Simulated scan of single mutants.
Amino acid sequence: MKVIVGLGNPGSEFAHTRHNIGFEVIDALSGQHSIQLTKTKFNALFGKGTIDGQELLLVKPLTYMNASGEAVGPLLHFFKLSAEDLLVIQDDMDLPVGKIRLRQKGSAGGHNGIKSLIQHIKTQEFARIKVGIGHPQRTHEAVVRHVLQGFSGEEQMEIDSAIERAAKAAEAWMTLPFPQVMNTYNANK
């Protein structure tokens, strides 16, 4: 079994904000593969299904972004899964709006959701799909405001395309070696 986790914040007030792009990719995969997210355990909403014959869990942590690991760590443990079975979809302010970048491992890079995951699963060795949300000015207040707002009309077209590409990359990860998936999707503009 594999696990695809989309990072975000629960609640309607955070829906369709920049920080919730991970949830949107999970919603896209859920719809495309008829995997209903109806189960809750360990403060996570999830659904079981298959993609290309491979069993998986689609997961949205119900913790806030900064505590995502509190949901994902126990879920991995319960299903006896390792970091090798995990793919995380996250927002990335250092990428232009709509660009995606896949990484096989690495530090949190200032992303508090990833920092929490690393802390709770005790490794940086898990695959990620980063979706660019653009970067505001460098003040802390501007960053907080930026990640909790929606996309402009112009940006929305780029984001819709990025969600689609991220979902396709996640599907490819189910059956192909991740370096091969990275080569395909990191080269794609």
Rank of each mutant, 00 (worst) to 15 (best):
P136R: 05
E154G: 12
L86R: 00
G49V: 06
L7D: 04
K189Q: 13
A44N: 06
W173R: 00
L29E: 07
R18P: 01
E13W: 06
L76E: 12
K2T: 03
G106F: 10
V131P: 03
H135W: 03
F178C: 02
A166G: 01
G6E: 04
V143K: 13
R138N: 15
S107H: 10
G150L: 10
Q149W: 11
I4E: 06
S30W: 07
D94R: 01
E70V: 11
L56E: 05
I21T: 12
T40Y: 02
I21M: 10
A108Q: 04
L57W: 13
F78Q: 09
H135T: 05
N9P: 07
T17V: 08
R101I: 00
F14A: 09
N20G: 09
K2V: 09
M157Y: 11
D94C: 02
G49C: 09
G49L: 03
M174R: 04
L176G: 01
Y64A: 06
L58M: 08
M93T: 13
G150V: 07
I133G: 03
K99C: 07
V143I: 15
F79P: 00
G22C: 09
S161K: 12
V72W: 02
Q36W: 01
E164V: 14
A167H: 05
Q137V: 12
R18K: 15
D85N: 13
A187H: 08
G113L: 05
I114K: 02
A170F: 08
I159H: 04
G31A: 14
S82Y: 07
G73H: 06
V181L: 00
L45T: 11
A170Q: 02
T139Q: 10
M93V: 13
S161Y: 11
A166S: 07
R103F: 03
H146I: 10
H135S: 15
G109F: 03
D91E: 11
A162I: 11
S12K: 15
N188P: 01
F78P: 00
M1R: 11
S12M: 12
Q104G: 14
